[in-house]
């Protein structure tokens, strides 16, 4: 039986009259890496803050490890590592002092060798004062804080923000390792490639509402297929003017189509024009995402 590490039902947050999130129902299962996608202001951070009881919902409920986020939040948060999107640190501290402080406040003495190993992998010099760090190094400090106790659940808000590509890959490796350990990751991002790279499932939030939740590969498959059809002699321009089919490119030998439905019709038409070859062009999550937002 699968265990829900995160569950929300009808979770709604308002900031006064301003919408935060509306009726968000989501579940994240143990050992899963869940990508939470959406543009700025869609409600990603609000959802994460509601899960951590930073802000309270006006209606609905949220649970972490089956524990009510508000009533039993303290117990639940013992198993959570969090990286906020807007990270603010104690600038006068050295990084290692900050790590010790967080551990002291957690009431835990974590595995320092693991912490040092993460710092080494991120190439973070912990002996310097935080105010001397670049934005990227400050972000690394936040990453270490989130991961250092090997929490059962990682809630990461745009974890690779401000990091250079190599370090971004290291963070994604840490996420993969957490998954390999059977831990759960709730990962918000607007960088679709990284979500595609590490996530099992993805939820897309739009104007505060969860508009889709799907396995990454299923979402890609479900949305549309892109085919490039090669011909000896090109068919006329309106040959593929079928319902659910859009011609996106045409050159001297081939036609590229995006197909949401009516694949049979496309193939029938292609055969009548003596199709020579059919290529499937991979659809990126970014394109699926833009299709959601662009109403393509």
């Amino acid at each position: 039986m699968t265990e829900n590490v995160i569950e929300t039902k009808g979770l709604t947050v308002y900031y006064g009259r301003q919408r935060g999130i509306l009726n968000v129902d989501l579940t994240v299962q143990k050992g899963e890496v869940y990508g939470f996608l959406g543009p700025n202001g869609a409600g990603k951070t609000t959802t994460q803050r509601a899960l951590l009881d930073v802000i309270r919902p006006v209606s609905g409920q949220a649970w972490l490890f089956g524990l009510d986020c508000q009533k039993e939040g303290v117990t639940a948060r013992q198993r959570v590592g969090y990286l906020p999107g807007e990270l603010s640190l104690y600038e006068n501290m050295k990084a290692y002092q900050f790590f010790d402080t967080v551990e002291a406040m957690r009431g835990k003495n974590g595995d320092k060798s693991y912490r040092e190993a993460i710092c080494q992998r991120l190439n973070l010099d912990t002996g310097r004062k935080i105010r001397e760090y670049s934005r990227g190094n400050k972000q690394k400090v936040g990453v270490v804080v989130a991961f250092m106790n090997k929490p059962d659940l990682l809630i990461l808000d745009e974890p690779t923000s401000g990091l250079d590509p190599l370090v971004q890959q290291t963070v994604l490796e840490l996420v993969r390792e957490a998954k390999a350990d059977g831990r759960t990751v709730f990962f918000s991002s607007h960088i679709l490639s990284e979500v595609q790279e590490v996530c099992d499932r993805v939820g897309i939030i739009r104007d505060g509402q969860l508009v889709a939740t799907e396995r990454v590969e299923t979402l890609i498959k479900q949305q549309f297929k892109r085919l490039r059809l090669s011909f000896g002699a090109l068919p006329p321009a309106d040959a593929f003017a079928l319902d659910g089919v859009t011609e996106t490119a045409r050159d001297e030998q081939s036609v590229t189509l995006e197909i949401r439905e009516n694949l049979n019709g496309v193939l029938r038409t292609a055969v009548t024009y003596h199709v020579l070859d059919i290529d499937t062009i991979p659809v990126t999550l970014e394109e699926v995402f833009l299709a959601y937002y662009g109403g393509k």
Binding site: R49, V54, T75, S88, V102, M105
Partner: peptide
């Protein structure tokens, strides 16, 4: 912004 991290601790 320092309070956010603190209130997310147990």
């Amino acid at each position: 912004g320092k309070l956010e991290l603190m209130v997310t601790l147990p």
